[in-house]
Design a protein around this nucleic acid. Structure first.
Length: 849
RNA sequence: GGGGGGGUAGCCCAAUGGCAGAGGCAAAGGACUUAAAAUCCUUCCAGUGCGGGUUCGAGUCCCGUCCCCCCUACCA
């Protein structure tokens, strides 16, 4: 085979050389450097498009084939938008604080910064090998002091707004990780990372008042172009419910008042006439006060059991409700003194959670399924108050539906001063401190007294003292008792201010979410030394037009970032109240796995396929069933992107990722499908190898214009897989025509191909001596007159069933089409034609009989 | 239990209410080749989970039902 690039000479599609050449050229020419307001070369007349990936944590394992699925989608869109004349901001960075680097440091003594740098370098080169058009001049790294300086500065803004506070609260403590965790990071009593057991423990921690923003975080979801599932998850997490709070007074069995009144939250205050008992959470402080001596032993034992039970165990045991009578009673405020219904028993039970509402509930067995179950089990009174959807035995509410009775009851309670209408949220304040080394230090100083003890007074570090840099440490292990590793850096911890006064630094660090709460703003102005970002740039680029990432961040990163952004908005630092206008969750890239009859998973490399397409395990010979699963080391089904690039090239890899199906769909990586897209690129290469022609072939020209239309249309709605199908159609047509493309056709197809397979497109652009920079060449316009053939076949139906086809001109009139249809259908037409439906260019339908 | 998303050829996946098929994989046959690979050409394949309804016409809209995936769950 002759090797060479001269046109007219058949040469191989040498993707390795082509990709290396163009990646180098893009770097040298700064092809994808983006200019914003105030930057040289900025063109203010162009519209902007900000397309963002959720930046990765640079793990030691390197890039996973799942990462490029989203990155390929955004890159195709970024490249497409450049052709459409947009100023495109398409940056990449590293969310590099986090536990793995710290744990590796504890095991090996390697400083997390060293590990992080190595991992970042690896990730960057892997991403560059895929030819993504990021503006690498804007790369940010959350662990860089010049970055976290501004993370600390934003913390100060939140603090100054009164949104950050310290509190001794029961928080999730994870012994294994040696740190506290946020509610969002604990699932069923286990840490989200690593699945280690966690317990509730009272500790003094930094909190953010995210609950003050609950209403806005909920309401503003409305206008966002986000997946319904993510909006639903955020709504549920915020958990707004309307109802009332009302107070119950504890009393003895004789009705003598004891202790303080307790408040309950209920969404159905109107069912108060059916309230026959109350339940306090075992953690409720009042339980100690009101429990009678006779019941004390049983209650203490129950409470102890409840604390020992993990949240997980409580959830597992949910079917079987348990509880203990406290011996005390509560006065149902709706009944007058002397009414026997007024005195109701108070129980304690762990199905009532201290963390929701007030930790105390009124129970209406006739209205609530759980209360009913509990009442049945412990033989408590069940008083009817509902007949169908109408209230009964409820005095002034009788005959009302709940829509009428709830407001009526709230009005009544408020009038009598017994309760108030109340909106309750499930959202808790955000626990913002961690006992780790590898995180942002707080810009906080604690006042200490002569004995070196904290007085409780704190002050912020001055702006000119930022960043508060991480001190060097030898040992990164958390100290016993939850003391953070930073406490060991004694020189760093002690600060003497200008007045000679001694302070101690905060030794907790920020959680990993901090850096990712605002990185999309730093990309706008990454080298700014004097400010986190420039207002003019922020005004131009924000909000993010397209944000692509995994669904796992639905309530963590995406809720936190929205919260920070709203605070920044209230501070007048940003111009929009929401950061991410359109959000897309890319589907997961899964892998095949195999399961035997016993349901055990069998590693991929231990399975062989039979001729008939079934599978068997090599060792045992037993039949196994193919299924899709997450890639995992144990199943040995992890695909390494580097191997794919070596074998097929980056363009094939990109094309395959985009061609797997809709970007939002999960699909297994199927090595068998790779050659299909690879062949398409080879065919494309070959079409261009025959040189350019003068003569314009009609079929090729039509296919090209159809492709221009379809690819543009599909890309507007992120239909990457169907856009690629359109490209394939064109190449199939061009191959079939066996005539060289004209220079114009060759150029136009290069532009269509560039977003998907940029290296090959650049090579072909250069081989055909096109002028100008391909990445910024204007997207071609399609000519509607060239879209259709000289004649088209129109289906002719009788009663909706296909009976014949009429060959007509594409622009035939309605009457002429009907005439042509009558001609071809004549022999099939029997009986009276009652109606004729004619859709010009589409079909004709005769309704008979 | 609640919420979100899906069921179309052997497989992945397309189809503004208008011929069920764009594209790819796999399969079969052929061309080229000493042979194989690669490449090229040709061919094969379902009536859209199931049952109703609306319509001239339903994969698409409506009602019911079954199955699968994801998220969430004693939230008062």
């Amino acid at each position: 085979m002759p090797v060479g690039n001269a046109l007219g000479t058949m040469s191989e599609y040498d993707f390795t050389a082509i990709e290396a050449r163009w990646q180098a050229a893009w770097r040298e020419n700064n092809t994808f450097a983006t200019r914003g307001p105030g930057e040289e070369g900025f063109d203010a007349s162009k519209p902007k498009y900000y397309v963002l990936d959720m930046f990765p944590y640079p793990s030691g394992a390197g890039l996973h084939v799942g990462h490029p699925k989203g990155y390929t989608a955004t890159d195709i869109t970024a490249r497409y938008k450049r052709h459409r004349g947009f100023n495109v901001l398409h940056p990449m960075g590293w969310d590099a604080f986090g536990l793995p680097a710290e744990q590796y440091a504890i095991q090996t003594g390697t400083h997390p910064a060293v590990t992080t740098k190595a991992n970042v370098d690896n990730f960057r080169s892997q991403l560059q090998a895929l030819g993504f058009s990021y503006d690498w001049d804007r790369e940010v790294n959350t662990t860089d002091p010049s970055y976290y300086k501004w993370t600390q500065w934003i913390f100060k803004q939140l603090y100054q707004k009164g949104l950050a506070y310290q509190s001794e609260v029961p928080v999730w403590w994870c012994e294994e990780l040696g740190t506290v965790l946020a509610n969002e990071e604990v699932i069923d009593g286990r840490s989200e990372r690593g699945s280690h057991p966690c317990v509730k423990k009272p500790l003094r921690q930094w909190m953010f008042k995210i609950t003050e923003y609950a209403d806005r975080l909920l309401a503003d979801l409305e206008d966002l172009d986000w997946p319904d599932s993510v909006k639903a998850m955020q709504r549920e997490w915020i958990g707004r419910s309307e109802g009332a709070e009302l107070a119950f007074q504890p009393a003895t069995a004789e009705g003598v008042e004891v202790g303080e009144a307790f408040t309950v939250f209920t969404t159905r205050p109107d069912t108060l006439y059916g309230a026959t008992f109350c339940v306090l959470s075992p953690e409720h402080p009042l339980v100690d006060v009101i429990t009678t001596p006779e019941q004390m032993e049983a209650v203490s034992e129950y409470r102890e059991q409840a604390t020992r039970k993990s949240e997980l165990e409580r959830a597992e045991l949910q079917k079987d409700k348990t509880g203990v009578f406290t011996g005390a009673y509560a006065l149902n405020p709706i009944f007058p003194e002397g009414d026997p219904r007024r005195l109701i028993p108070i129980w304690t039970a762990d199905y009532v959670l201290m963390s929701y509402g007030t930790g105390a509930i009124m129970c209406v067995p006739d209205g609530d399924e759980r209360d009913h179950e509990f009442a049945e089990k412990y033989s408590l009174e069940i008083r009817q108050i509902l007949d169908g959807d109408k209230m009964v035995n409820s005095d002034f509410l009788d005959g009302m539906t709940k829509e009428e009775s709830i407001p009526a009851m709230i009005a009544w309670l408020e009038e009598k001063g017994l309760g108030t209408g109340k909106v309750n949220f499930r959202l808790r304040d955000w626990l913002f401190s961690r006992q780790r080394y590898w995180g942002e230090p707080f810009p906080i100083l604690h006042e200490i007294d002569a004995a070196g003890e904290r007085t409780g007074e704190v002050k912020l570090a001055a702006d000119e003292d930022l960043p508060v840099s991480l001190p060097e440490l030898e040992d990164f292990t958390p100290a016993a008792g939850g003391e953070p590793p930073l406490a060991r850096a004694t020189d760093w911890v002690t600060v003497v201010d200008k007045g000679g006064k001694t302070w101690k630094r905060e030794v907790n660090s920020m959680p990993q979410w901090a850096g990712s709460c605002w990185y999309y703003l730093r990309f706008l102005d990454p080298h700014n030394q004097g400010a986190a970002w420039d207002r003019e740039k922020e005004d131009y680029w924000m909000p993010v037009d397209l944000y692509v990432g995994g669904a796992e961040h639905a309530v963590l990163h995406l809720l936190y970032a929205r919260f920070w952004h709203k605070v920044l908005f209230d501070c007048g630092l940003v111009t929009h109240s929401e950061p991410f206008q359109k959000l897309v969750n890319q589907g997961m890239v899964q892998s095949y796995a195999f399961k035997n009859a016993a349901g055990l998973l069998v590693p991929v490399d231990a399975v062989t396929e039979n001729e008939d397409g079934s599978f068997f395990a090599q060792e045992t010979g037993e039949a196994v069933e193919r299924m899709t699963a997450k890639m995992s080391k144990s199943l040995r089904n992890v695909i390494n992107p580097d191997d794919v690039i070596t074998q097929y090239g980056a363009d094939t890899m990109r094309l395959y990722e985009a061609f797997m199906g809709p970007v939002t769909a999960s699909a297994p990586w199927n090595p068998r499908d790779l050659p299909g897209v690879f062949r398409f690129l080879q065919r494309t290469w070959r079409v261009y190898q025959t040189g350019l022609g003068e003569q314009c072939n009609d079929d090729v020209e039509r296919a090209l214009h159809q492709a221009i239309k379809k690819v543009g249309h599909d890309l507007e709605q992120m239909g990457y897989n169907t856009a690629i199908a359109a490209l394939m159609e064109f190449i199939n047509a061009a191959t079939k025509a066996k005539v060289p493309l004209t220079a114009e056709q060759a150029a136009n197809f290069c532009i269509l191909l560039e977003p998907f397979a940029p290296h090959l497109a650049e090579e072909l652009w250069s081989l055909t001596n096109q002028s100008g920079e391909l990445a910024y060449a204007a997207w071609p316009e399609f000519d509607a007159s060239k879209l259709v053939a000289d004649t088209i076949e129109v289906p002719v139906q009788i009663n909706g069933k296909l009976r014949a086809r009429a060959v007509v001109a594409p622009d035939v009139s309605k009457d002429d089409l009907e005439a042509a249809a009558r001609e071809v259908i004549a022999e099939h037409l029997q009986g009276e034609v009652r109606k004729v439906i004619v859709v010009p260019g589409r079909m004709v339908n005769f309704v008979v009989g």
